[in-house]
Design a protein around this nucleic acid. Structure first.
Lengths: 356, 356
DNA sequence: CGCAAGGATGTAATCGATTCCATGCGCTCA
DNA sequence: TGAGCGCATGGAATCGATTACATCCTTGCG
């Protein structure tokens, strides 16, 4: 492949001049510029990003370590991250951790070795020494969706508190009293928060969240299936299962279907994370929707701010409830719930599909 | 960040020796090796992949340019590609072309600039000059799923011919006679092939595929919706809609639902590409399943073969029909179809997992 | 007319590795 | 005992860019 030297030779100038043309340095004569450009064209020269990165110590690349690519939520996140990064002149290398801390470490190490300019992480666990070291060493980093407490890194995430309250209000309004939850890994912030939010919302209605109604999942479909089977085997099974991510909801649906039970007649189902498919499942699933695209874009902006020397703040965007049929009752007018926290009315707008 | 020089200083040896230790060159005394390793440890040294790549002219990175990340089929493909690549010591940079030739070019250019060792592409169109140049210049390349005719590049793909025949047999057996298809872009091989296969299979049953029953889609959900609406507006609407990818099937389902029609009672639906969600839609969708994971792995192996100097062959794996309820009739025993081409009985075996 | 200012250009150092070549040393073997 | 071999090691070139510094030339102004 042609190098800058070849171009210089062909154009009859020095490599310095070629480099200046390539970087639009002002101090180049029109004549020289034209000759260089011609040479570039005729040789089909393309700048070697590797050499350039070595010299400038910038790769114009962002690393994104995601918990699970097969999860549509993260896929959408990845997509918006790439789009925004591209708009800002960066490329993105995606690492799929598959909810495994060891894989997460593998990718972080790999990305660091490649000298990416900054790292976007949705941590699978409480943070390995490797990641903490990277933060300490000053690697620009931003957490998305999940984060690691006590680490000085901006966090871009959705706040589901109000939406979970709306969900509980909705469920309570439909007459449900025995509500169960499929939790995510305790090592993840989202895993914990969602359970806490759910429990508190229940308390507000004088309801309890007994231990047997808390199933330990891992954000994967199989665990949703397993936990749901456990619920169904209980002497007094719950009336509602709330899966804290979309894959576990899918697993729950599997398990329920396998027993020959119907949703929502025999048992209701709700999920955290809304995805296009939820409109088409049988029945359509009531879910808490995150502003995924917005999150991805905000995360990239924060990271790039950090890379370019500014000091970004954490960003928290609200999630919202999308009511469908999986909890009983056709989706229709709010019928604002009765008792306690009447703040934040349930939003029922259709699922957004376009992007801003 | 510590460099090899720092390590050399700390260990009291030359950089050459450090490099030898790092690359396990045999000619290093146990003593020197130990001192280097200790220095590496104490400095937390990590090899700079950028510098290394510049010198060795290898990045140990594969580029994957995919037509659409939001399509679960491609997501799964990407995942398996990354897994196999990792197993072989390569990283993967994914570029999402979003079915847009310009974006595809952007990514190819970017990846080439980054001097990736090889490129995996599922082309969005007939091939831009850029891509053809790259091939001519000797960039190791492999096409996955789709390909560009006339270009000397190995292709790893699924053959849906037999499965499409099985599908038509199934539909015919259910009494359907007016079958329509939502085609993909004519610029893609898969877009054309699937229509051709469908038409021929229909012919075998003495059926015709009239122009009005061929809708032009673009592999995105919106086009599936639009085309399906067109079909439903016809004086004589089809009895079956066959969407040639899963997103267009989703769009078709949308459109059908929006008219208040039922699947399969009012109109049947089938799709190319099977995805986990099809089990849970209402009704579960009959689809042609590709051995996606296997395709991804085979593609990586072929590409790495090519990179390491061997000369890989193209690989074609069979797709298979998965019957569900969306075409009528509960899914049950094959009930081998009656009339013509009795060859290639519907394959219902589990997905093959072994490699050639 | 002479000198300073500043534009255009080239030379060479540099980034962090890898690797060829030369050197020094200890051994073996004739 | 000395020639020769091979191992361990260091020096220095190299990959392809960027960029500080030096140099030369052209202008403008006093």
């Amino acid at each position: 492949m042609a190098s800058i030297k070849d171009v210089a030779g062909q154009a009859g100038v020095s490599v310095a001049t070629v480099s200046r043309v390539l970087n639009d340095h002002p101090s180049v004569s029109a004549d020289a510029r034209a000759r260089v450009l011609a040479a570039v064209e005729s040789l089909g020269y393309r700048r070697n990003a590797v050499a350039r990165s070595l010299r400038t110590d910038q790769t114009h690349t962002l690393g994104l370590v995601i918990s699970d690519v097969m999860n549509p939520y993260f896929t959408e996140l990845a997509r918006s991250v790439e789009e925004e990064a591209r708009a800002l002149g960066y490329s993105v290398i995606i690492g799929n951790a598959d909810e495994r801390p060891d894989l997460q470490d593998h990718h972080v190490r790999n990305l660091l070795d490649r000298r990416i300019d900054g790292l976007l992480v949705s941590p699978t666990d409480g943070g390995s020494p490797l990641m903490l070291d990277a933060v300490r060493a000053g690697t620009p980093m931003v957490f998305v969706d999940r984060w690691i407490p006590g680490v000085e890194v901006p966090v871009v995430r959705a706040d589901g508190l109000a939406a979970v309250r709306d969900l509980v209000a909705h469920l309570h309004g439909l007459g449900h009293r025995r509500l169960a939850i499929i939790a995510g890994p305790a090592a993840t912030t989202t895993g914990q928060e969602r359970v806490t939010a759910f429990r508190e919302a229940l308390h507000a209605y004088g309801l309890d969240l007994p231990e047997v109604y808390i199933g330990q999942g891992d954000f994967q479909a199989a665990s949703g299936r397993r936990v749901t089977e456990g619920f169904l085997d209980l002497p007094e099974p719950p009336e509602v299962v709330f899966a804290t991510d979309n894959l576990m909801a899918l697993g729950a649906l599997d398990a329920i279907r396998a027993r020959g039970l119907r949703v929502p007649e025999d048992i209701a189902l709700a999920a955290f994370d809304d995805i296009p498919w939820f409109v088409h499942t049988d029945p359509p699933i009531t879910a808490i929707a995150q502003p995924t695209g917005e999150l991805g874009r905000a995360a990239v902006r924060a990271l790039v701010d950090r890379i370019e020397g500014r000091t970004p703040e954490s960003v928290t965007l609200p999630a919202r409830l999308v009511v469908r049929r999986s909890c009983g009752e056709p989706a229709e007018p709010p019928a604002s719930p009765e008792p306690p926290p009447a703040q934040s009315p349930a939003v029922r707008s259709p699922v957004r599909r376009s992007q801003p």
